[in-house]
């Protein structure tokens, strides 16, 4: 018995260790939140990213196969702020007891610009006619991304309190890298006079970036890539570009640059380059790569 008992304890402990090592299954509907979950969760999570880098989240709809991946999920990550009109569908399919975390809804919001290009019609953001539209593109603010890291860290900690220290350490490391990134962005945009930080882009995705780094945004389309530019809006923008002497107009990775090209041809300004508006691209799949690409492109074009 003396020899058997320690052996039994070892088997039980081994079993406990195995159980503790079972990773938390996380299903993410945002390429950026997949990155956050992997960075914070490390080996303790198994992340399935359904919206991959380079996919336009405005146009994404989960397929039946996508929804099957929710089986066994303990945490479902949603970007939020009405970006995903299919949240109810996900909630119906997600396993009982799983946590559906709409990260963006835990972060401060910016409303669509007053009298801007959000025309209140149905376009997937879920707001009614006349209701104020919330800008869903919170990730263009590094400060918001840092808040999102804390939200995900806390959610993982609630699911696996035994891994709290590891999640805290991983999150701290990632937050420090984001702080360095934020400082770098401020140094880069400081190369542009503040009165010349005017960003003309394909759709209205950069308001959080503008608020943090002192830009004014003029978008061809509205908050969603599914809103098309009106002829009146294009004319208005061309007049502004001529009046203000805007140096460059930018297009986006998931949108046809036809209107942008037409505007530059008509106004004599130039195409500033491609920006990642709705998350990182396939060629530059991390948050840091996305931000560095965007900032470098903007600063080089507007200097």
């Amino acid at each position: 018995m003396r020899r058997f008992f320690p052996g039994l304890v070892a088997v039980l402990l081994g079993g406990a260790t195995l159980f503790a090592a079972e990773p938390i299954r996380v299903v993410s509907f945002s390429a950026l939140l997949s990155e956050v979950a992997r960075e914070v969760g490390g080996d303790a999570v198994d992340v399935v990213g359904l919206v991959k880098p380079g996919v336009d989240p405005h146009g994404y709809q989960p397929t039946p196969v996508d929804l099957k991946t929710l089986a066994g999920a303990r945490l479902v990550l949603i970007s939020g702020k009405h970006l995903e009109p299919y949240v109810d569908k996900v909630a119906r399919v997600a396993p009982a007891g799983s946590v559906i975390l709409s990260v963006g809804d835990r972060l401060p919001s910016l409303d669509a610009p007053e009298g801007g290009h959000d025309h209140g019609h149905a376009h997937g953001h879920g707001h009614a006619e006349g209701e104020s539209a919330v800008d869903p593109h919170w990730w263009h603010s590094v400060a918001q991304m840092r808040r999102a890291v804390v939200v995900v860290r806390d959610a993982l900690t609630a699911l696996a309190p035994e891994d709290k220290a590891q999640f805290a350490k991983n999150a701290a490391g990632y937050l420090a890298r984001l702080a360095v990134l934020d400082k770098w962005i401020r140094q880069q945009v400081a190369l542009l006079p503040r009165d010349q930080r005017r960003l003309v882009t394909s759709h209205d995705a950069f308001q959080y970036f503008a608020r943090d780094y002192g830009f004014q945004i003029e978008a061809i389309e509205g908050l969603s890539t599914e809103q098309e530019a009106s002829a009146g809006r294009v004319q208005e923008l061309m007049a502004l570009i001529r009046k203000e002497g805007v140096k460059a107009v930018f297009f986006e990775d998931t949108l046809n640059p036809k209107v942008t090209t037409e505007i530059t041809r008509e106004t004599g300004t130039r195409v500033g380059g491609m920006l990642y508006a709705d998350g990182p691209g396939a060629a530059e799949p991390t948050y840091e790569q996305m931000q560095r690409h965007n900032v470098t492109t903007i600063v080089e074009a507007l200097r």
């Binding site: 006079p193 009165d195 570009i241 009046k243 002497g245 041809r265 106004t267 004599g268």
Partner: peptide, 11 residues
């Protein structure tokens, strides 16, 4: 010929 965008007034 499209006239280039005018330079913005200096601050």
């Amino acid at each position: 010929a499209v006239a280039p965008a005018p330079a913005r007034a200096a601050a």
